[in-house]
Amino acid sequence: MRETRARPIRVLLILTAIAVGVIVLFMTLNARGRWDFILPFRGMKVVSMVLAAYAVAVSTVLFQTVGHNRILTPAIMGFDSLYILLQTSLVFSLGSARLTALDPRLLFGLEVVTMVLFAVLLYRWLFSGTSRSLHLLVLVGIVFGLLFRSLASFMQRIIDPNEFSILQDRLFANFNSVESDLLLVSFGMVAVASLAAWQLVPVYDVLALGRDAAINLGLDYGRAVTTVLVLVAVLVSVSTALVGPVTFFGLLVANLAYQVAGTHKHRFILPVAALLAVICLVGGQLILERVFAFDTALSIVIEFLGGILFLVLLIRGIAR
C-alpha cells in the first residue's frame, strides 16, 4: 500500500520540477531587450499555454474514463472542430458589427454554453447506443470532425472579407497577441470547471470500473456521464480558443500519463497528465522557437508524434 502510493508522489514531484524549470527557461532564455517588456509578454504566452495544456490533459483523461478506453479523445471525436464551427456560425449569423459591440467575455460565455449544449446532445446520442463498436465511434468522430471543418470553411468563404479577418483573429488567438480579456475569461472558466471537476475525483475512479459496476456502487451513471461531458466541453472550448485544434495532443499526454504515473487513481493521473501537457507544450515551444528558431510548427510536430502513437495503439490492439 505504502509502496503503491510513494511512486505517484515521486513522479508528481519530479514532473512539477521539470515543468517549473521549462517555464523559467521559456521566460528567460535568449531575452534581449528590457525585462519589463519581455516578462509580461512572455508571461501571457506561458499562461495561455499552461491553461491550454491543462485543459487538454484533464478533458482527455476524463473523456477516456467515460468512454472506457485509451484511444477516444475529445479532439479525435471532433470536439475542437465543433467549437470552430460554432464560432464561425456565430460570426456568420450575427455579423461582425454586432459581435464587436458585444462584451467579449459575454460572447465567450455564449460560445461555451452553445458548445456544451451541442456537445452533450451529440455525444450522449453517440454513447447511448447499446452496442456500438469502438471503431465505429472513432471513425464517426473523425468524419464528424471533417464535416464540421468543411462546414466552417464553407461559411468562412461566404462571410465577407472584413468579417473573415475578424473571425481569423478570434479563431486563432495567436500567442503573440493573446488578448488579456480572453485569457482572463479562460482562466475563470478553467478555474470554475476545475473546482467542479476536483469535487468528483472519486466518481471518476468508480466510472472507470464500467457502467454496471458503477451503477451497482450507487452512482447515478447517466448524470455522472453528462456532468463529465459538460466539463469536457467547457475545457475543450478554452483550449481550442487558446491554441486552436490539435487532434492528437490529448491522446499523447493521457497515454503517457498512464505509463508514467504507476497508478490509475484519478487523483494522481489528472495532475500527472496536466504536468506532462505543460512540459510538452511549453518545452516543445521552447525548443522550436529558441533552439530551431521557427514558430508555430509545434502543433504539426505533435500531430506527427500523436498520429504514430495512435497507430501503435491500434497495432497493439488496445482499441477493442
Binding site: H135, L136, L139, G307, L314, R320
Partner: peptide, 16 residues
C-alpha cells in the same frame, strides 16, 4: 477485428 479499423488506420496514416 472490424472492417472499420482499415479506414481508421488509413486516415491516421494520412494525417501523419
Amino acid at each position: 477485428r472490424s472492417p472499420l479499423i482499415v479506414p481508421l488506420v488509413g486516415i491516421v496514416l494520412g494525417g501523419i
